[in-house]
Simulated assay, not measured.
Amino acid sequence: MSQRNALVTGVGRSAGIGAGIARVLAAEGWDLALSYWHPYDERVNQASSGAEEVSALAKELEQRGSSVVTLPADLEDPAAADSLVEQAAEHLGPLTGLVLSHTEGVDSSILDTTLESFDRHFAVNVRASWQLIRAFALQAPDDGGAIVALTSDHTAHNLPYGASKGALDRIAIAAAYELGDRKISSNALNPGPVDTGWMTEEIRDAVQQRQPTGRLGAPADVAGVVAFLLSDAGRWVSGQLIKADGGFSAA
């Protein structure tokens, strides 16, 4: 790729997967647009990740030599996705990488999921992701680019999250075929359970017992796979649902 400019969504918490991906991409020479939405982190993660946390991450990445712009975006808003890509490209130039690590994730089951929650999950995880992929493809340079969408295999007792991630898988795989003539690769990446601060001791112990590596996944583990898929060497991999979970799903 002639340019290495990427938009990474869902970078609201310095301990999160999105931030881990941004750190590895910066180390590999990418210029970055980072999107975040603090009201989500405050509502779901009960985290007080304010603008200062994203600013600190941006400064860290700039010290590694990257140009960085941070962009708040409420992806539940139908107008947000197109605006986000437009702003990112205005600051950096044409984007050649798109990493979808944003999510709406609230546990609920078939009998107790509310209509509001269901609609919000699909607005953020599905509709906005499709809009971001479309906007990314329309502005991509002649030599194309690469898309990586983070997904999950959650199902029971995680109805709106799991169902919306299943829909995201189909969109990411469809993009590989439909955008291939634009020299754009697209993959869905399932990182398995990664402890970014959300695990209780009980969950952490259960996951470690099932994990053949004997350790929990970390954002850096996911980031290395993402960086490969965005690289020139990784772009022949396309249209895949990839599990990069240290063997967790093999149990």
Rank of each mutant, 00 (worst) to 15 (best):
R204P: 01
V225D: 00
R127L: 03
D41E: 13
A137G: 14
G247F: 09
N45H: 15
S14M: 07
T70Y: 07
A167I: 08
D82R: 15
G145P: 07
E116N: 04
T213M: 06
S66N: 08
A27Y: 05
G239T: 01
L229T: 01
G192W: 05
A33M: 11
E201P: 13
I21S: 08
D41Y: 12
T151W: 06
V68A: 02
A233T: 07
K243T: 02
E178D: 12
L111Q: 11
A19R: 06
D205C: 03
D181V: 13
I242L: 15
P94K: 15
L189S: 07
A128G: 03
I17Q: 03
S83W: 14
D169Q: 10
D31P: 01
A223M: 08
A79Q: 14
A22G: 07
G50K: 13
S55K: 15
E116M: 02
S66E: 09
K243G: 04
L230Y: 00
L138Y: 03
A27E: 12
V237H: 01
Q131F: 12
R127Q: 07
V54N: 05
L71E: 10
A81G: 11
G105F: 15
P193T: 05
K183A: 00
L150F: 04
L168Q: 09
F136N: 05
L84C: 08
E202P: 12
K183Q: 00
P39L: 07
T113Q: 14
I17N: 03
P219E: 09
D82Y: 09
A220K: 15
M199Y: 13
E76C: 02
A26M: 07
H154G: 07
H38M: 11
A250F: 10
A137K: 12
A223G: 08
Y40C: 03
R127K: 13
D205Q: 14
P72N: 09
F228C: 01
R64F: 05
H154I: 00
A223E: 07
L229S: 01
E60Q: 15
S249Q: 07
A135G: 13
D153T: 12
T155F: 04
L189E: 08
P193D: 01
H121I: 04
A244N: 13
I147K: 04
A73R: 10
G105C: 07
H157R: 15
S49P: 05
I110T: 14
V126M: 06
V69I: 14
R43K: 14
F118T: 02
I203G: 01
S238Q: 00
G239M: 04
Q240P: 00
A15E: 09
Q3M: 12
E202R: 12
N125H: 11
M1V: 10
G93E: 05
D221R: 09
R210E: 06
Q3A: 13
L7Q: 03
G144T: 02
D221F: 08
Q46S: 06
D31V: 02
Q87M: 03
H121L: 08
L71W: 11
G93Q: 13
V148T: 09
G16V: 05
S49H: 14
D245H: 08
S14F: 09
A149P: 01
S164E: 13
I110A: 14
E178A: 01
A19V: 10
L7Y: 11
L159Q: 11
E86V: 01
H102N: 09
